[in-house]
Design a protein around this nucleic acid. Structure first.
Length: 580
RNA sequence: CGGCGCGUAGCGCAGCCUGGUAGCGCACCUGGUUCGGGACCAGGGGGUCGGAGGUUCAAAUCCUCUCGCGCCGACCA
């Protein structure tokens, strides 16, 4: 492709609202343009990248034996009503009416529709296992789209669904997807972890997320520095053991409980400075509302409450941090002075917090704290695991085996998710089969998602520098970018020949043939991120050379000189080796 | 949904407080000089100031309503 004939609208300034690297560079480099909140145009380069991502996903799904289908995006409302998700999905579901007033929705995911296929077409145990997938546009009215392609209201997703005769067979299907997903993300050049994930309200099911490690990620995961353990902080908390505060703390004598005047020092940060204690010596006490009851949750000052686990322990769907007024009603003190000593009501104490010796905590009296507080002597409560895993915790997997692995906290972007659904949808929609004993049984399902358009952004998050994008070979819109310097006949002739010779060898080439100054072309080349740059200019040609430089090398002096005559073959060989 | 904030040229912004000719940089067009890491000079085109209503002799500016958008939080396969 000649740049002069392409549509690659690079810009110097990033959109003001962009905060993530992928949003900034994909926009600046002319891959995408915003149309509305969570809606984007894919310009020509963007489409090429998206198609490359799709191709990898499609190939590995096919290799894993999955069958591609295509379901509608516009769906009659009856399907979601059949499983109850018409109501459950709430405002996230895009709803619309047709001319006759009938209910329709845009597909946010396709369990209902695929289950409809299954109940019509799968009748015998002989018809399974089956795995059906599609790559298609999804619609979710997200409360807050953000990060460019990272969270959209309209996005491209690969969703696969497996159908098996029983749980054991379903696990095999799940396992095949796990293997396929590892191949897919590896080929995309991503640094990712498969992590144990919260299995949600449906107990006993298996679920794992594929988290790509980037600082701009929305999810928090912990990774062991010694073994291969990795988990979402929400599930890691129960098993992880906190690092010890200090040896002295465990052998020190119990101090007397004392009330201390702490005017206006409500927050953990304030109070640790004021009382000159460390955060791990604080008993952080938070009031939660579960239904009608106020519950006090106590964690160590350096820990965070795992709200999902609190809700699970209390047997409710969700809990909310109490409002200021509710806190005052429950504790008799202003926010910032709650504590377990003398609290009237249910108290959940995190295991790590219960071990704090001579701790400091709110006195349930405005402007007062207690110091020298010890569990059981000064307060009671149910000792449970209600904190999120934290940096430096001992690994629950290998610490016991004497390896002393420590957990490190990372931010992640959820790129994929695999899940054994069980019979939730097959039961709700009567998708059953006859087993060899002629018994009617519900199909056991699994579902497997990959955020395809999100991956485009995710890859940029991991493959960029200060100058722009640096695509992995298999994702890049072109393999080689030729930069011709000036308008000398010799330069044009050499570039024209190289361009043709590379194409003849199956290399995808972009030639920046614009009448621009060299600096502009180099800047744009770094911005759009083609893996290999070939500079054809008077200086090099005088010595019979072109200059070859990978995008990952920023120092132009380190470009490699390659003889013009053999350049096409050498470069083509290199490209094919990189793609092999 | 809660908190804060933003809508002025294709993009990034100033002007608003204190009402009185709508500006700057980039991009774009013309001419010239330049040409190996985002050139320079000269000239030029382009804006219902998000929308509606109100106050006023006069509104980008003040008031009311409304729509759109963003950041933080909550929520979320």
């Amino acid at each position: 492709m000649l740049w002069s004939r392409a549509l690659i609208p690079t810009v110097k300034e990033a959109p003001a609202d962009a905060t993530s690297a992928s949003h900034i560079f994909l926009t600046r480099a002319g891959y995408i343009r915003k149309v509305g909140a969570g809606m984007y145009d894919f310009l020509p380069l963007g489409v090429k990248v998206l198609k490359n991502v799709e191709a990898i996903v499609r190939r590995e799904m096919n290799r894993a034996g999955a069958l591609e289908v295509l379901m509608p995006q516009l769906l009659p409302g009856e399907y979601f009503k059949e499983t109850g998700r018409w109501d459950l999905y709430g405002d996230v579901l895009f709803r619309l009416k047709d001319r006759k007033g009938g209910d329709f929705n845009l597909g946010p995911t396709h369990e209902e529709i695929i289950t409809d296929i299954a109940r019509r077409e799968i009748r015998s145990y002989r018809d399974m296992p089956k795995n059906l997938y599609q790559i298609q546009t999804k619609f979710r009215d997200e409360p807050r789209p953000r990060g460019g392609l990272l969270r959209c209201r309209e996005f491209s997703m690969k969703d696969a669904y497996s159908f098996d005769v029983d749980e054991e067979s379903a696990k095999k299907s799940y396992e095949e997807m796990r293997v396929a997903y590892n191949k897919i993300f590896t080929q995309m050049g991503l640094n990712f972890r498969m992590v144990a994930a919260d299995s949600g309200a449906i107990g006993g099911n298996t679920s794992a997320e594929f988290q790509v490690l980037v600082d701009s990620g929305e999810d928090a995961i912990v990774v062991c520095d010694t073994c291969d353990y990795a988990a979402n902080v929400e599930v890691a908390s129960a098993a992880a053991k906190p690092a010890k505060v200090s040896e002295a703390a465990t052998t020190v004598r119990l101090a007397d409980k004392q009330k201390v005047h702490t005017p206006g020092h409500g927050s953990i940060e304030d109070i640790t400075k004021f009382l000159k204690v460390s955060a791990p010596e604080m008993l952080k006490s938070l009031v939660y509302v579960a239904g009608k009851d106020a519950v006090l949750v106590v964690v160590r000052g350096d820990h965070e409450v795992n709200e999902i686990r609190v809700a699970r322990l209390l047997g409710v769907n969700e809990v909310f941090l109490a409002s200021d007024a509710e806190v005052e009603r429950a504790t008799g003190a202003k926010v910032g002075f709650a504590g377990p000593v003398g609290f009237k009501g249910r108290v959940l104490v995190d295991r790590a917090a219960s071990l704090v010796v001579n701790g400091a905590t709110g006195a349930n009296e405005t402007d007062y704290h207690f110091t020298g507080v010890n569990f059981s002597r000064d307060y009671e409560g149910e000792v449970v695991d209600v904190r999120l895993a934290a940096n430096g915790d001992l690994c629950p997997n290998c610490a016991n085996a004497g390896k002393n692995g420590k957990l490190t906290l990372y931010k992640g972007i959820e790129a994929g998710h695999i899940f054994i659904l069980g019979t939730k949808y097959s039961t709700a929609m009567s998708a059953s089969f006859l087993d060899p004993a002629q018994e009617k049984k519900p199909i056991v399902m699994g579902c497997y998602g990959i955020g395809v358009s999100r991956l485009v952004a995710t890859i940029v998050e991991q493959h960029h520098d200060a100058e722009g994008i640096s695509w992995p070979w298999r994702i890049a819109p072109y393999h080689v970018e030729i930069v011709s310097i000036g308008k000398d006949a010799a330069v044009l002739e050499a570039a024209t020949k190289l361009y043709a010779d590379l194409q003849a060898r199956g290399v995808e080439v972009l030639w920046d043939d614009r009448d621009e100054r060299p600096g502009v072309k180099f800047k744009d080349a770094d911005l759009i991120g083609i893996p290999l740059r070939v500079t054809v200019g008077g200086k090099g040609l005088a010595a019979g050379n072109v200059e070859v430089k990978p995008r990952t090398e920023l120092d132009p002096k380190k470009a490699e000189l390659v003889p013009v005559a053999s350049a096409a073959q050498i470069i083509a060989d290199r490209v094919h080796a990189a793609l092999a």
